[in-house]
Design a protein around this nucleic acid. Structure first.
Length: 450
DNA sequence: TTTTGAGTTGTTCGA
DNA sequence: GTCGAACAACTCAAA
């Protein structure tokens, strides 16, 4: 049983399938340098924590190997004399290619390769328009997604069903030391958070999901990323007649939608989905690098932007509303390539998921599916006032501004005055939003007319 | 094939 | 202070 993005025992079709079809299984996880190379310490720490817990659930017999799965998996199968390898399907650009190669290699040595289940409620490729084409617009996709539906969660194997071949496990790598306050890893923590979300949060999801100062979101993204919980299990707990539940279900649909889009257009992970955006002018050079660093390390002088970027560095997570604000700032105020921001997010997010991340960024940049109108440019001050009305979120992540009065905390100029008065080290705004907004609109108009 | 209705998340300006 | 209009067409999906 080759675990990948399904680090759980509950509702795991491949695990159940393998246990039913065979006398005993050998659970395997492969640390693929290709996938861990771009993951920062936060995601690696979280992943290793998930593996530690999975190992405990598997009686300490999880086999961990490092290397290219194309060699590692067939070699491990031969070593243990496996007749078959079971795993879930992967629909990412790299995963698809890798699995074809693994399948071929296994076939050559007479080992069956069976893929069942996937990390999504509705698997990529399952839904097509009436003209048999992939969906490019969210709303029709979501209608189709709802009418297609999904299966109920399947039972967790009982201890007596969990027949694991006695085999010494590979050594788990040491977890990097991370100062960050990460979400607790693993399947049990995922269940706990799901309970809490269902009991106390989701009823108010509609009104509070955009408030970074409150605990108004699911915070399930890291668990969904690594499959500590499956969306089926979450959907099973929702009551669609409640508007907050319905709203959250839509967010799970977005996750499936972007996975579907990337499946049909694997190139869109690295290049604009709309090809005419290839020539969109972005800034580069030393000045651009300076601005990027100010953004990345939370020194732009715009409090809500800096709060978000610092939360990312410390927690490996950022509130969704703030992700949009900082993304808009990078693209529309700093005129930088969305891919620079997307890469930074992928390095630092615990929940960093290629499909959701790249397409979320492309949505903001305007180059993706269902793109925002080009004139929809977030004003970081207005957004801050509207969604962090008391300034609590900014005060938490930008301690320099902790003593700013509530009415001024989102105003760069006012905070500048406050910081001069108190000689606090908070930077002045690196750009003038009104000016950069006009500059961005001009560039967008140029793209349209050429 | 043609037509028609519709499309996550905003801001600014002027009445 | 509040409110509605302008900002732009364009393309997708289905009837």
């Amino acid at each position: 049983m080759w675990f990948r993005r399904d680090l759980r025992l509950a509702d795991n079709p491949a695990l159940v399938g393998a246990l039913r079809a065979h006398d005993a299984i050998v659970p395997l996880f492969v640390l693929d340098p290709r996938l861990t190379r771009n993951a920062g310490a936060a995601r690696m720490t979280f992943l290793l924590g998930c593996l530690e817990e999975l190992n405990r659930s598997l009686e300490g017999r999880l086999v961990i190997r490092s290397g290219d799965p194309r060699q590692v998996v067939p070699r491990a199968a031969a070593e243990v004399g496996a007749s078959a390898v079971w795993c879930a399907e992967d629909f990412g650009p790299y995963g698809v290619e890798r699995d074809v190669a693994v399948s071929d290699a296994l076939e050559r040595q007479g080992v069956q390769f069976t893929q069942t289940g996937s990390p999504y409620a509705v698997s990529p490729g399952a839904l097509l328009t009436g003209a048999k084409r992939p969906y490019q617009v969210f709303t029709p996709y979501s209608r189709s997604w709802l009418s297609h539906g999904w299966s109920e969660p399947i039972a967790t194997p009982s201890p007596s069903e969990l027949q694991i071949a006695p085999l010494s496990s590979g050594e788990l790598p040491k977890r990097p030391v991370v100062a960050a306050r990460l979400a607790p890893p693993g399947e049990h923590a995922a269940q706990r958070r799901l309970e809490q979300f269902v009991d106390h949060v989701v009823d108010h999801y509609g009104e509070q999901r955009d408030r970074p100062d409150l605990d108004g979101t699911s915070r399930l993204s890291p668990y969904l990323k690594f499959g500590c919980v499956h969306p089926r299990q979450v959907l099973h707990r929702l009551n669609p007649t409640n508007s907050g539940h319905d709203r959250f279900r839509t967010e799970l649909c977005w996750r499936d939608f972007y996975a579907d889009v990337l499946f049909h257009r694997p190139d869109s992970a690295r290049a604009p989905y709309r090809r005419e955006w290839r020539d969109f002018m972005v800034d580069s050079g030393v000045q651009a690098d300076v601005r990027f660093d100010a953004w990345a390390y939370g020194r732009t002088g715009y409090p809500i932007v800096d709060a978000g970027m610092r939360q990312l560095l410390e927690e490996g997570w950022m509130h969704n509303r703030v992700r949009m604000i900082v993304a808009s700032f990078l693209v529309k105020d700093l005129h930088l390539d969305w891919r620079r921001g997307a890469k930074w997010f992928m390095q630092h997010l615990v929940d960093g998921d290629l499909a959701s991340n790249q397409h979320g960024w492309q949505w903001v940049a305007g180059s993706g599916t269902d793109a925002a109108p080009y004139f929809r440019i977030f004003n970081p001050v207005t957004q801050g006032k509207r969604f962090d009305p008391h300034g609590d979120y900014v005060r938490r992540w930008v301690p320099e501004l902790a003593s700013s009065p509530q009415g001024e905390i989102h105003e760069p100029r006012a905070t500048l005055r406050a910081t001069v008065m108190s000689s606090v080290d908070y930077p002045p705004p690196i750009v003038d939003h009104a000016h950069e907004r006009d500059a961005a609109l001009l560039r967008y108009r140029t793209l349209r007319t050429t």
